[in-house]
Design a protein around this nucleic acid. Structure first.
Lengths: 344, 344
DNA sequence: GTACGCTTGGAGAGCGCTCTCACGAGCTGC
DNA sequence: GCAGCTCGTGAGAGCGCTCTCCAAGCGTAC
C-alpha cells in the first residue's frame, strides 16, 4: 500500500524545474549533471520529502535490490538451531551497507514448485540458501537464471558448480578427532549427523579419516539428527553396543566421543552422566559449532568453533558480487578453530 | 533480474486467443469468465509456464503482498535471544497459507530514518515489530500510512493506539511470585529486565504487585539486560546487598527469586551455585519465557511459559486482517502458563 | 567560418500488470 | 417488440520509474 499523497519523481521534477530524467540521474548518481541542477533537485527532494518508489524502479530497471534468504521448512526447526541465528546476523550485517533488502523465505520441501516460481518470478536478484538437504530439488532447473550462494557444500551433483561458502567440515572433524587421539585417548567414537546433509557427511568422513589413519575401530559410530534428544539416544546406543571390554564395570567400550554438533553433544553428555560416566574423566567429548550455550554447559564443552556470523557475511558479500556481475571462485572456505574447554 | 525470455500476460493472452484483461481475471480469480475462456487461459499458462511478475502487479495494484518483520538492531542480538526464533517460526507458518512474503528488516536504531523511509517507500503492505525499545522512534510519525502490529505493548504514548499482541506480563509475573510465596517462601527477590522494554517493566511491576500485597520487601530487586551474563551479575549484587540476616552463614537474605527471563535465570542459578547456594533447596527460582533450553538445565527450570510461536502466528493473522481492511481490537492477549519443574 | 566533440538535459517509449469503462449479446418482463 | 437487465469481454489508460535516443549549447581545432 502506497500512502496516496506520496510525492513522485514527476512532482520533484516540477518542483525543481527540471525534467524527470534529470531528477532520476541525480537521485541515482548517474552521469553528469550540472551542479546547480543537482542542488535544485536535492532541495526539491528535501522539500517534498521524496522517497523513490522501489517497485516502480524495479519494474523499469529489472532489478529488485532484494535478496532471498531461503531456509528449508524442515530446518525452520532451523530457527531452533542455534547455528542459524548468527548466520542471519551476518547476512543482515553485510547487507546493512548495501541497498539490498532481505527476504526471508521458508521453503516448503513438499512443494519445491512454490520456491522455484518465486525465484523465477522476478522477485529477487539473488538467493542465499542455508542448510539444504540432498533431497531438496527446489534449486534444480534454475539454470543460471539467478545467482545463488549456498551455505554449505551442495550435495546434488547438478549443483556442484554452484557457488558456496563452507567450513572445511571434513578437515575440522579430522583435526578434532586427532586432538582426542593425541591427548591419550585410545578408542574415539562418534555421533554423526544426518547423512543427507553435507555437514553430517563430511564430519563423519573426517572422523573416519583420523580413525583409519591410526588403524582404529570405525564401527564406533552412531547417527543422530542434530538435536539434543537424538544425541542422547545415540550415546545410549553407543554405550549399549560397545560395553566396556574389561571385567564387568560401568565403563564403556570407548573413552572419547566426537559429536557432529553441540546440541547432540549436550544430549550425549547428559545421557553419559545418567549412566554414571563423567566427562572428561571417563569419556572426553568434543562437539562441533561452538553454539552460544556451549561455554555455559557444565563442564563447558570443548568444541570446533564454526564462525557462523562470518559465514553469513561471506555468503552475502559473495552473492552481492555475483549479482553485480563479477566473477568469483566457486568455493570459499572459512577456517575453523578448536576451542578447548572442559570436556576434552 | 528477470530472466529475459519470461512469458508475460500479453503472451498468454495471445496464446489463449483472449485479451490481457481476461487472462488477468482468470489468473486472479476475479469476476466471471466463461468456462471455455478459463480453460483456454489455464492451458496457455501451463504451456508457456507463465509466472505473474509480482513487481508489475505491485506497481499497478499498489499492493506488494509483502510484510516486514522488523527487528531492532540492538536486538539482533535478538537472534541470540531464544525467544525470537519461535516467533519467526510462527510468523512464517501463518504466512505460508497466504500470498504474503516475509521481509526481514534489521532496523538501525541510530538511523530510524532508514526504516521509516523503507516503510513509507511502498515496499510493504504492513509491518510486524518485535521487541522494540522505548527509545526507538522509528515508528512515530508513520501516522496511519501503514498497518503495524507490535509484538509486546508499545511504550511510547503516541503508539498506544497501535495494534499489538502480548502476553499479560504483569499478571503472569504476579502469579509466578505468588506461587513462590504460596510455596512457603518468605522473601522473594527479583532480577528485572531492562526498564526501557515493556516486558522488563511489566514483569517487575507484577512482582511488585505480589510483594506489596503481602507487605513484603520491594527493595529486593536488581536489574539485568536479559542476558545470561547480566543475570549472573545481578544475582551477585543481590547476594552482596542482602546477606543472610542470621548469624554469619553462607545463606542469603532471600529464599526465592523471580527472574524476568530464562537466560538471566540460568546465569543467576550458576552464580548462586558458585556461592554455594543450590536451587531449589536454598533459593527457589522461577524464570520467564520457557526457552528451548529451560527444560534441559540442571535442575530443569521452573518458568512462565510464553507461547512465542503462537505470538508470531497471532501477530501475523492480525496484520493480515488489518491489511485487508478489517477492523480488529487493538490488543490481543495470549495466555501464559507456569511450568513447574525443578527449581521451584 | 566550418567541422567536430563534449557536456547537459528533455522527450518519450516502455517495464508487465490492474482496473475502469464501455459495449455487445442474450435475457426478462410488460 | 422494446426498455432494462445481467454477463462476459476488450480497449486502453495508467502505476512511477529507467534509459535510450536526440537536440542544444559551447568550446576547440583547422
Amino acid at each position: 500500500m502506497i500512502p496516496s499523497g506520496n510525492p513522485t519523481l514527476e512532482m520533484v521534477a516540477a518542483e525543481a524545474g527540471v525534467s524527470r530524467a534529470t531528477v532520476s540521474r541525480v537521485v541515482n548518481g548517474h552521469a553528469s549533471v550540472a551542479p546547480e541542477a543537482v542542488a535544485a533537485v536535492h532541495a526539491a527532494v528535501a522539500r517534498l520529502n521524496y522517497v523513490p518508489n522501489r517497485v516502480a524502479r524495479s519494474l523499469a530497471s529489472r532489478r529488485t535490490d532484494v535478496i532471498a534468504l531461503i531456509v528449508p521448512e524442515s530446518t525452520s526447526t532451523v530457527f531452533a538451531d542455534p547455528f542459524f541465528a548468527p548466520v542471519v546476523r551476518g547476512v543482515a550485517r553485510a547487507l546493512a551497507e548495501t541497498d539490498f533488502t532481505l527476504n526471508l523465505l521458508v521453503a516448503s520441501e513438499t512443494r519445491p514448485e512454490k520456491t522455484r516460481r518465486y525465484l523465477l518470478g522476478g522477485n529477487v536478484d539473488g538467493a542465499l540458501v542455508v542448510s539444504h538437504h540432498s533431497g531438496d530439488h527446489s534449486y534444480l532447473g534454475l539454470g543460471d537464471a539467478l545467482p545463488i550462494v549456498f551455505g554449505g557444500r551442495p550435495l546434488n551433483p547438478e549443483l556442484e558448480s554452484r557457488h558456496y561458502v563452507d567450513v572445511d567440515n571434513r578437515h575440522a572433524a579430522r583435526s578434532a578427532t586427532e586432538y582426542l587421539l593425541g591427548s591419550g585417548r585410545r578408542r574415539v567414537a562418534t555421533i554423526a549427523g544426518p547423512q543427507d546433509m553435507p555437514a553430517g557427511i563430511d564430519r563423519l568422513a573426517g572422523w573416519r579419516d583420523a580413525i583409519e589413519a591410526v588403524g582404529g575401530d570405525v564401527s564406533l559410530a552412531e547417527h543422530g539428527a542434530f538435536t539434543q534428544q537424538s544425541g542422547a539416544e545415540a550415546a545410549i546406543r553407543l554405550l549399549d553396543q560397545h560395553p566396556a571390554s574389561g571385567t564387568g564395570s560401568t565403563g564403556a567400550g570407548f573413552d572419547a566421543l566426537f559429536v557432529a554438533n553441540d546440541q547432540m553433544a549436550a544430549g550425549a553428555i547428559q545421557a553419559l552422566r545418567m549412566r554414571g560416566l563423567a566427562s572428561p574423566t571417563d569419556i572426553a567429548v568434543v562437539g562441533f559449532d561452538d553454539d552460544a550455550f556451549a561455554a555455559t554447559l557444565d563442564p563447558p564443552l570443548t568444541t570446533v568453533r564454526q564462525p557462523a556470523t562470518e559465514l553469513g557475511v561471506s555468503m552475502t558479500e559473495l552473492l552481492v558480487r555475483l549479482i553485480s556481475g563479477e566473477e568469483a571462485p566457486h568455493r570459499t572456505i572459512i577456517p575453523t578453530e578448536l576451542v578447548r574447554r572442559g570436556t576434552a
